[in-house]
């Protein structure tokens, strides 16, 4: 097995494995992706991860495209394809079959208990995602203020998130970050 193949296998195993833990969506996985990609596999620096995260956020499409970009960084186009398919394939097969029997247990007590029980875990994981990413993007008081200011503004208003991403880019270009 060549080195290229072994990187592709690592990508496939990593993303297929963690995809089942994407409870409440892909954002819950961001801290684990950061930990795996930066600390465990050593594929990139935390700085680089923050850059890729920014690019994915500024691109249109599902949150899952951060996975395509990580795959691309590690193994270019084959890496992107393998990582994306590994991330969405197994859970899509599950959705395909569960979708056909969902009406049978939509109101079942155990189904409601699972969903309600997972909500607090998801909240903690999404909050952890913001913390890990804020730390990766942190270059000083301005970035911290930008993170907290964006969070407060988006919590209390219905402004479009892109406004804040654009403001962040502008602050960077003028040299404040």
């Amino acid at each position: 097995m060549s080195e290229d193949d072994s990187v592709l296998w690592s990508l496939a195993i990593l993303f297929a494995g963690i995809s089942f833990f994407a409870i409440g969506g892909v954002n819950a996985l961001l801290p684990e992706m950061h930990r795996q990609v930066v600390d465990v596999q050593g594929w990139m620096s935390s700085d680089r991860f923050a850059d890729l995260f920014a690019i994915a956020q500024a691109s249109p499409g599902p949150n899952l495209i951060i996975v395509s970009l990580i795959g691309w960084e590690v193994g270019r186009v084959p890496g992107a394809i393998v990582a994306t398919l590994a991330m969405l394939g197994p859970t899509s097969v599950l959705a395909y079959y569960v979708g056909q029997v969902w009406h049978r247990f939509r109101y079942a007590r155990w189904r409601v208990a699972i969903q309600n029980g997972l909500v607090p875990v998801t909240i903690g994981l999404v909050a952890a995602a913001s913390f890990v990413l804020a730390r990766a993007a942190d270059t000083g008081p301005i970035t911290v203020a930008l993170t907290l200011g964006t969070a407060v503004a988006l919590y209390f208003t219905r402004l479009h998130p892109l406004i804040f991403l654009a403001a962040g880019a502008a602050l960077g270009v003028v040299g404040l970050i």
């Binding site: 923050a50 850059d51 995260f53 920014a54 690019i55 956020q57 500024a58 913001s130 913390f131 990413l133 804020a134 990766a136 993007a137 942190d138 270059t139 970035t143 911290v144 930008l146 993170t147 964006t150 804040f164 991403l165 403001a167 962040g168 880019a169 502008a170 602050l171 960077g172 270009v173 404040l176 970050i177």
Partner: peptide
Amino acid sequence: ALGGVAAAAA
């Protein structure tokens, strides 16, 4: 610029 975007996205 990307650092600013990442901080806002966080």
